[in-house]
Computed example of a mutant assay.
Amino acid sequence: MFGGRNLLIATKHRKETVIAPLFSDAFGVHCFISDEIDTDSLGTFSGEIARKKNTIETLRDKCDLAHKTVGADLVVASEGTFGPHPTLFFAHADDEWMMLKDYRNNLEIVVREISTETNFYGDNINNIRDLEAFAFKVQFPSHGIILKPAEKNFSKIVKNIQDREELQQHFNSMMNEFGTAYAETDMRAMYNPTRMKVIEKVTNKLITKIKTACPVCDYPGFDVSEIKAGLPCNNCLLPTRSTLSHIYQCKNCNHTKEKKYPRNIHYEDPMYCDHCNP
């Protein structure tokens, strides 16, 4: 389905350095990028252009923008969000999503990777000592820093900072002009090697999902569409809220398959049972 075709990677932040080799090796596609595509128009990490839609819709818009602008019929795009981990308290997370859209075959495949491996951080900076401490915390200069007057003040934004002398100069200029300064990690992939590693993980996950074909029609992307709870308690044997099975479904022929005990356990610990441990 993909061999020999051109794959457009919808990015302006050099994600192709990770994505292109993996997809080329896996599917024999010819990867390319285009300067005509401005993915920042759909939202920026620094906040001056707000992202108006959720992650899936934004990903779809990225692919559609690439498809309409360049005319490519095979597109891959990724989108990351950063903030509190959805389940781990007091932990920051990089929540990366990636989508492949094949317009020729009406195919859309999406994967997600949540990682605590992130240097996402922002803080008000009042002096050079605080600036140096912030820079050390976010692994500067291998990882970039963005400066602006305040977290929600976008009247002046300095990006692409990867030099200590330049960082101090821009900080002094910001303080002289506004009397305040806010520093944040530059989360754009090309200035953030830590994030680029997570993008590599989500790329591999997408490749694995694409290669998982439907056992009936051989269509790619045969994956979990539903998670069924009800794993029995080891003590009372009543169903718990823990996962009993995964339901796989083909997007092409709608063939479904249930795989029980995806965690390789047949009974749940009574501590997770609402009857034994209400």
Rank of each mutant, 00 (worst) to 15 (best):
H92N: 15
I128C: 02
C236N: 05
E268A: 14
A229L: 13
N192E: 13
A150H: 07
M98L: 09
P141H: 04
F23L: 02
M196Y: 02
T180Y: 04
V75M: 07
I146F: 08
R5A: 09
D274I: 11
P149C: 13
A10T: 11
H275Q: 08
P193L: 02
V216G: 02
S245M: 10
M196N: 03
Y103C: 09
E226M: 13
F82L: 10
V158P: 01
V202L: 07
I265R: 07
H143P: 00
Y182Q: 06
S41L: 14
K152Y: 13
K211N: 15
M99D: 01
P141G: 04
N176W: 08
D38P: 00
L7H: 10
P262H: 05
T203P: 02
K156M: 13
D38I: 09
N172Y: 09
G80C: 11
I109M: 04
G28R: 11
F140I: 12
K257W: 00
L8T: 06
K62L: 01
N176V: 10
N252P: 00
L7Y: 07
N126W: 05
F32V: 07
I207Y: 03
L59C: 06
F90E: 10
M175I: 15
A93C: 15
V29M: 10
G4Y: 08
K228P: 00
T185Y: 05
P21D: 04
E108V: 12
G230W: 05
F82V: 12
S155T: 15
V70A: 05
T203R: 12
P21S: 05
M271L: 11
R104V: 04
V158H: 08
F140V: 11
C63E: 01
K53G: 00
T203A: 13
F89Q: 10
K137M: 10
F45C: 08
H92F: 12
H30C: 13
F23S: 04
I125M: 06
T11A: 09
I207D: 06
I37L: 06
T69V: 07
R51N: 04
N160I: 05
G122Q: 11
T87E: 11
H266D: 10
K15R: 14
F140K: 09
L231W: 05
L74G: 11
T212R: 13
N119A: 12
R112S: 04
I207T: 05
N153A: 12
S115P: 03
T212N: 14
P239S: 04
E268T: 12
D35G: 10
D274G: 04
R14G: 01
K68G: 00
G4N: 11
F2I: 08
E177R: 09
I210V: 11
L65N: 08
V216F: 05
E57Y: 01
K12A: 12
P270Q: 01
E226S: 07
F134A: 09
P84Y: 04
R164P: 00
T39M: 03
V75D: 07
D186I: 07
H30S: 14
R60T: 12
T118C: 08
S78P: 02
K209E: 13
D269G: 01
S142F: 00
G4K: 13
Q139D: 15
S115C: 06
K211P: 11
F32K: 07
C250G: 03
N153P: 01
K68S: 09
D35L: 04
S155I: 11
R241D: 15
K260D: 05
T212H: 12
F23C: 07
H85L: 02
